[in-house]
Design a protein around this nucleic acid. Structure first.
Lengths: 139, 139
DNA sequence: CTAGAGCTTGACGTCGACGTCAGGGTCAAG
DNA sequence: CTTGACCCTGACGTCGACGTCAAGCTCTAG
């Protein structure tokens, strides 16, 4: 399929698809005319790329993962498996930490909402917004 | 305290603190010399700001939250409470969605790790990397 | 008094994943 | 053959939260 169709099927703009190729994440074939020709698996690849990008991985890192991936039977050059696993673990840890931060921030928003909402919910010694909270029991 | 001390106590650079003020997130007093003078609660405020920034909230939004916050007793001007709550809900939903995406991405990394790791773990009909997965049973 | 650390404002630089525009081929339908 | 949709390669623009550098004022210790 050509770039337009892949774009529709993935919800990603053609510009972004060309960018992914430029970063070494996609390797479409070329027609004599110069048009890019994509295969079915590219649809999945793009979804994977989007998922990892959404998680904050840099395209260069995603490129390493893809190029470092031992496809059935072969040992690819470039980053060795140990290095791949190291980077993998690093990103995994970063994601886990980010989830923690997000959870914390969400709790903060809830506190703010509770403080901002009309006294329906809380009328007692109203907890002040985070800018002046009394130590929330955190060591 | 002056900006340097607040920077040390929060782990945030002086440049960032000035930026927060410029965005209306902090309102330190000024000495006759022009030096900024911060209070104790600014320490907490800064931590809150960092938490929300880490969660992807724009400084402008954080500013609305802070300025829209009804401090004990007063009704501030600007964005009304309903609007505040709306924005609050929107950001909350965004955070929840982001957590979902992160969780998904982490799962993907685990799959890649499983595929990349030496056959110790899996030797059976090895699951291919995400770029060529067989439909993972998702509708 | 003087040095040095710390503070001020102002302004330009950075990084990443694209958006957008310009100028120009390709291709299938009518 | 022509039109219109689609594609190509540059190349510059964007947005946000700061980093960094410049030029100059302030404060404190010796």
């Amino acid at each position: 399929m050509r770039i337009g169709e892949l774009a529709k099927r993935t919800g990603v703009s053609p510009r972004a698809l060309r960018y992914y190729e430029q970063q070494g994440l996609l390797h479409p074939e070329r027609r004599p005319s110069g048009y890019r020709e994509y295969g079915e698996r590219d649809v999945r690849t793009v979804h994977g790329i989007r998922t990892l990008l959404a998680a904050g991985l840099h395209s260069a890192v995603i490129g390493e993962l893809l190029s470092g991936l031992p496809l059935p039977g072969e040992r690819p050059p470039g980053p060795t498996c140990p290095e791949l696993l190291t980077g993998l673990a690093r990103e995994r840890a970063r994601i886990t930490e980010t989830i923690r931060e997000l959870t914390e921030a969400r709790g903060l928003l809830d506190e703010i909402a509770a403080a901002a909402a009309p006294g329906e919910m809380i009328t007692a010694p109203r907890p002040e917004p985070f800018s002046a909270r009394r130590a929330p029991r955190r060591s």
